[in-house]
Design a protein around this nucleic acid. Structure first.
Lengths: 339, 339
DNA sequence: GTGAAAGCGCTAACAA
DNA sequence: TTGTTAGCGCTTTCAC
C-alpha cells in the first residue's frame, strides 16, 4: 500500500536534517518571530542544504488558502487588458499571490466555462472584466465565498466590488466634444458582433447622445463583424462608413486600434484628416499620440484598474475591508489633432 | 481537535448523496468509461444537485499532478510574447491545464525569483522565454523533474526542449538584405541596457555581419537606455542615430516598436523614408504592414512558438515523447517599402 | 518556544 | 464494476 511519494524534499526531511519537529520548520518559514534565533539559524541552514521547496498544494489544502487569484479578461494579445493584468500582477505578486489568467475571447459562455474551471483551484479572489455575465456565471461568482472585483465597466448592482468607469459617459463626452467642434454627421465604428458588453454600452450611448444633440439626424453605425478587432478591421470600417454613409464627417471608433486603421486608410486614400474626415479613438494607446495627426481619444485608466483591483482584493482577502467597494476611476478626453 | 473544514461540498458529500463510495464518484468524474451507465447517471445527478466543484489542490496533492504549467515571459503588455502566451494557453487549456504566468521584466534575477516561487506550485511543465538564465535558475529548471521548454532563442545546449529560431541568423539576414539593396552605412538601434539576451544576440550578430560585409566601416549602435522599449524610445533612437552617426542610411531596429517610432519621427521631421533613411524592424507587428511606407521587418512565429511549445509539453507530460526536442521554427524577411 | 496528533479532500493501490 | 485503506505534505489545534 505504499504510494509513490513525490520523492522531493519535504518539511519532514528538513526537520530530520535540523533535528527539530516538522512543526518548527513550518513556523520558521511562516512566523519566524515565534522561533528562537538559534533554531531559526539551524532550520535555515537545513532548508538551504536540502534544497527544500515548500509544496503549496499541501499548504493550500491544509490552510484552505491557495494564494492564487483568478483573472478573467476578454483578450490578452495587443489589448488594453494586458496593462490591467500587469498592474494586478505587480500588486499581488509582491504579497505572494500568483495569477491564473483566462481569456474569454469576448464570449460570455466561454467566461462561464472558465469560471467553473478556475473555481476548482479555490482562488482566494477573483477579478473579471465586465459586469455582464451569464446567470450561471453570476451565481458562481456570487457564491464563491471569496472577494470578487468586476472591472472596466460601471453598474449600480455589482456582484461584490467594482473598479471601473462609465463607458456610457465616456462616449457621451466624445459625442459632446465632436458636437461642440462643429461636426454634423458622426458615425460610430466598432465590433458589435461579439458579446462584448462594453462595446454595446458605447454604441448605445452613442445612439442616445446623438439623438439628443442631433435631432432628426439618422443614427449611423458600422460593424467590423467577422474582422473582429484589428488594424485591418479599422481600415475596412472606414471604407464601410464612407460607402454606406458618405456624408460622415467624423468617425467615432470604439477602440484606438480601429481608429489607427481608419487613419492609415484615410491617408493612403488621400482623405484629409481631420478636414475632410475627423477620427476619434478609444483607449489612448501609446501609438495614438505619435500618429500624425495625433489621435483624439478617450484616455482610460488601464493600468490603474489592475492596481486598484489588486489592492482591493488584498485588503478584502486579509479581512481589512469588509464592505464591497465601488471605485469610479473615470476617464479623460485626450483632445488632439485628428478631431 | 476538529478543524474548521472548508465547508464546501466534497467528494464525500456527493458520494453520500448518491449512495456510492467516494472512489466511485472520483472515477465517474475522471474515467467515466470505467463506471456503469446507471451509477454514472446517479452520480451526475448528485453532482449537479449538490453543486459540487472538485478541489484541485487536494487532487494535486494526492495524484502528484497539478494540471498547471508555469510560463515565464519578459513582458506581457504590448509585446510579441502575448501572442506566444495565447498560443500556449489555447493548446493547454483544451486539455485542462491552467497557466501561471510571470513577467520577468527582462531581468534574469527576477526570472530566478519567479522560478523559485512557481516551483512551489509544482507545475507539470515549464515554459520560459530565452536560453540565458542565472546559474541558480538553470539548476532549478534542470532539477525540476518536469519537462522544460525554452523558447524564442536558439542554442546547442538547451536545458531540455527548445522551440525557437536563431536571432543571430535573422539579423544576419537583415544585414545581408540591406547590403544587397545598396545601403552603405547601417546603424543598429535597440535596448541594450537590460539583461535581454535576445537583444544582445541581435546586436552581436549585427556587429559580426557588418564587419564581414562592410570592411573598414565603423560599427554604429544606438541604445534606448532608460527609455526601454516604446514608440517614444524609437523616436529618440532615430534622433540619436542621426546626431551621433549622421552618415547613417539605414536603421536596423531590434523591434518593430522602435521602427514604428523611428518612422513616425522621420516623417514628422520631413526625412524621406526610405530615400534619405531606410528603416528595418523586427517582429512583424500587425501595424507594420499598414504603415506607409510599410515596414520591412523580420517576421517571427510569435503564436506558433506558443502552440508548438504547448504541444511539446503535452506530449512530454503524458509520457508520449521521452526525448528532449529542439524545434527551429525559423523566421522570414518581410521585405516591404521602408528599406 | 517547541512538539504531537489530527485532518484538509482527494487519488493510488489493492481487494472483492 | 465497486469499495476499502492508506496516504499525498502541509497547517491547525492543543498540550507542554
Amino acid at each position: 500500500m505504499t504510494r509513490r511519494s513525490t520523492n522531493s524534499v519535504t518539511l519532514h526531511d528538513v526537520a530530520a536534517h535540523a533535528g527539530v519537529s516538522p512543526q518548527t520548520v513550518s513556523r520558521a518559514i511562516r512566523m519566524p518571530n515565534l522561533v528562537s534565533e538559534s533554531t531559526l539559524a539551524v532550520v535555515r541552514t537545513s532548508i538551504a542544504e536540502t534544497g527544500y521547496v515548500p509544496n503549496l498544494a499541501a499548504s493550500n489544502l491544509a490552510s484552505n488558502r491557495s494564494m492564487t487569484v483568478a483573472a478573467l479578461v476578454p483578450a490578452v494579445s495587443y489589448s488594453v487588458f494586458a496593462e490591467t493584468i500587469h498592474g494586478l500582477d505587480a500588486v499581488l505578486a509582491s504579497k505572494g499571490y500568483h495569477l491564473f489568467i483566462g481569456s474569454t475571447d469576448y464570449d460570455a459562455d466561454r467566461e462561464e466555462e472558465l469560471i467553473r474551471a478556475f473555481l476548482g483551484r479555490r482562488p482566494d479572489g477573483i477579478i473579471v472584466v465586465g459586469t455582464e455575465h451569464t446567470p450561471a456565471a453570476r451565481a458562481m461568482l456570487a457564491g464563491a465565498k471569496v472577494p470578487v472585483v468586476e472591472t472596466w465597466s460601471w453598474t449600480d448592482e455589482p456582484i461584490d466590488s467594482l473598479v471601473g468607469f462609465s463607458n456610457r459617459e465616456a462616449i457621451t463626452a466624445v459625442v459632446d466634444y465632436v458636437h461642440s467642434r462643429g461636426y454634423r454627421h458622426p458615425t460610430f465604428a466598432g465590433w458589435l458582433t461579439g458579446s462584448d458588453s462594453r462595446a454595446l454600452d458605447r454604441r448605445l450611448a452613442f445612439e442616445q447622445r446623438t439623438r439628443e444633440l442631433y435631432p432628426g439626424e439618422p443614427i449611423r453605425v458600422v460593424d467590423s463583424g467577422a474582422d473582429g478587432i484589428s488594424i485591418a478591421a479599422g481600415r475596412a470600417l472606414l471604407d464601410r462608413a464612407l460607402r454606406e454613409h458618405p456624408e460622415t464627417d467624423v468617425l467615432l471608433c470604439a477602440s484606438d486600434i480601429f481608429a489607427t486603421g481608419a487613419l492609415l486608410e484615410a491617408q493612403s486614400r488621400g482623405i484629409a484628416v481631420p478636414d475632410r474626415l475627423a477620427i476619434c479613438g478609444f483607449g489612448d494607446f501609446e501609438l495614438s499620440r505619435h500618429l500624425s495627426p495625433a489621435l483624439t481619444t478617450v484616455s482610460t485608466p488601464n493600468l490603474e484598474i489592475g492596481r486598484r483591483a489588486g489592492e482591493l482584493l488584498l485588503s478584502r482577502m486579509h479581512g481589512e475591508t469588509a464592505e464591497p467597494t465601488s471605485l469610479d476611476l473615470g476617464f479623460s478626453l485626450a483632445a488632439r489633432d485628428s478631431a
